[in-house]
Design a protein around this nucleic acid. Structure first.
Length: 557
DNA sequence: ATTTGAATAT
DNA sequence: CATATTCAAA
């Protein structure tokens, strides 16, 4: 397979070496085509029937970047099948006959273009555009293996160019011609369109669209720390030139108008750039996450707004995928170690800054602090006098770990923290109320209260939920959290008898408690007990009903 | 000098 | 709102 991230770097003269699958029954025209393509430095694999071709594709999906498929009235059926199966491969249909119906069908089935034979050299030469287009517009998920590298290389190229302020050797990409698929990005997000589902990408940096400040352009030098991180997007006027330059001249396509839009800084122009990363990170210690960045621009075909997408700071769009990465990073680090810089590091998402992460982390923590106590309230509702600050003796004083995973839970169930993956399009908050926090792999949750103290000394390691509810403490209320004295006091006072009898001997010394409490206070989002097995949703429900709470708003489950 | 987390701004 | 930016503190 040619296509690894490394190969990209080697792919200096981009279209060259692109692998073309040629499916054509007419052997003579096929041979001719092949010749031409090869002259253009494409690597051609010829097939005469679609089954062969499909087999080749399924055997080695990464062997082809683009397909050119001839269709005639006779073989159209098979060709349609090809289109249906080879969805990952940008496929150009060619035909001797112009049949609107056939064309329509091909396009509907995902063909990227329908060309009438004979194919012009120009058309042929430029087939690479479809590869790039697909690489940039397909969500990371369904991006075929062969396209990922392309995408990556494009991104790195673009980045480099922007950073250097000058075009890189060899490759340049022009996108103007691309149809403005992005135009209705919002719509796509909400109602993913069948043909080219714009699935969520990693980081979506959204331009705020106010290009009105020319001045800014000149003065934007602002010194400053964070600017470095935005280097690639914060451009000055001269960079702008460079930018426009960047987008011109793909190998021989000089003529197609490059949008030289001087600078129509205007209103309403929106464009965005997109950085996405692979999200194949599976659970577990596999942090193999290499990641690619994808830069997705709104092709500015329309009107004045050119593609100067990335000039101001972009807003990071925390897509579920991105958030998932975030959570995985946090999980991996363990809540107590989850600080922006490390998270950022773990996420390895290009274009994301520490600030972005910090901001997100802030929200994340707030969620945790709010959601959890609520759950607690539900489990031990204040019967009366909510103003009463005292905690029930029966009420738990210690929170069960907001994180902490039940190792037996499949990773998939680990979601709830910030909610199950909802349709990003739905616009629903991804971390809406969830019944349970993202229990994470136990080993990743490091609670180190005190160096010599074994975590397990605390509380009851694994107990049925009912038992836990009787023995483990929990924050009485959110109001209470943050009251250091109160908490400290409460904890010290009640911990002893909220402990299971069996643990009595293991009571930590007061000073140890102090330490723990201190840390707990300092990092209130940290879960307290250790080694506790989180109750399953079912058992919680059971427990709830046992306590006479039978009605749970559906959205909480 | 950096980084963090919270507060505040957009 | 969700993110970004600012700010005080570590």
């Amino acid at each position: 397979m040619v296509c690894t991230a490394n190969d990209l770097l080697g792919w200096t003269d981009f279209p060259k070496g692109l692998r073309v699958l040629l499916l054509d029954e007419d052997s003579s025209s096929a041979a001719e085509l092949r010749l031409k393509l090869e002259e253009m430095n494409y690597i051609v694999s010829m097939f005469c029937d679609e089954d062969e071709a499909l087999t080749a594709i399924s055997d080695k999906p990464e062997s082809f970047h683009v397909a050119i498929v001839e269709v005639s009235t006779r073989n159209s059926h098979g060709r349609f099948k090809f289109l249906e199966v080879a969805t990952d491969l940008p496929t150009i249909m060619t035909s001797n006959t112009q049949c609107l119906t056939t064309m329509m069908k091909c396009i509907t089935l995902g063909a990227v273009e329908f060309l009438l034979k004979p194919l012009s050299d120009d058309k042929l030469r430029n087939i690479w555009q479809h590869v790039v287009h697909k690489a940039f517009n397909a969500g990371g998920k369904d991006l075929s293996e062969s396209l990922k590298p392309v995408k990556e290389s494009m991104v790195s190229m673009l980045r480099l160019q922007l950073e250097n302020g000058e075009p890189m050797s060899g490759i340049s990409v022009k996108e103007e011609h691309e149809t403005a698929v992005e135009e209705n990005k919002e719509e796509h997000d909400k109602y993913p369109a069948p043909p080219t589902p714009q699935l969520e990408q990693g980081v979506r940096l959204v331009d705020d669209g106010d290009c009105q400040d020319q001045i800014n352009c000149l003065t934007e030098k602002e010194g400053g720390d964070q600017d470095g991180e935005y280097k690639s997007v914060d451009t000055t006027c001269e960079n702008l030139d460079a930018e426009t330059t960047v987008w011109e001249i793909p190998p021989q396509i000089s003529e197609e108008a490059v949008i030289k839009d001087e600078d129509e800084s205007l209103d309403g122009c929106k464009s965005e750039s997109n950085v996405s990363s692979r999200l194949e990170n599976k659970d577990g210690p596999s942090d193999s996450g290499g990641d690619a960045a994808n830069l997705n621009k709104a092709s500015g075909v329309r009107n004045s707004c050119g593609n100067k997408a990335n000039r101001k700071k972009m807003k990071v769009d925390w897509t579920p995928e991105l958030h998932k990465k975030f959570v995985q990073a946090v999980d991996k680090l363990g809540v107590d170690q989850a600080i922006p810089s490390r998270i950022l590091e773990l996420m390895k998402v290009d274009g994301l800054t520490r600030h972005n992460v910090a901001s997100h982390l802030q929200k994340y923590r707030m969620q945790r602090r709010h959601i959890l106590p609520k759950e607690v309230e539900r489990r031990w509702p204040h019967p009366r006098d909510p103003s009463q600050r005292s905690y029930h003796p029966h009420k738990p004083v210690m929170a069960f770990p907001p994180y902490h995973s039940n190792p037996t839970l499949p990773a998939a169930q680990v979601y709830p923290a910030w909610g199950p993956p909802r349709s990003y399009a739905s616009g629903v908050q991804m971390w809406g109320p969830a019944f349970y926090p993202p229990w994470q792999p136990t080993e990743s949750w490091h609670w180190k209260p005190y160096p010599g103290m074994h975590a397990d000394a605390w509380g009851c390691p694994v107990m049925p939920p009912a038992a836990i509810s009787r023995t483990i403490s929990v924050f009485p209320s959110s109001k209470y959290i943050g009251n250091a004295n109160g908490f400290n006091n409460a904890y010290a006072t009640h911990s002893s008898y909220t402990m299971p009898p069996s643990s009595v001997d293991l009571q930590p010394a007061d000073e140890v408690i102090d330490k723990v409490v201190k840390e707990a206070i300092n990092k209130r989002w940290l879960p307290l007990p250790i080694g506790l097995k989180p109750p399953s949703t079912d058992s919680v429900l059971t427990e709830l009903s046992r306590q006479g709470i039978s009605t749970i708003p559906p959205h909480l489950i």
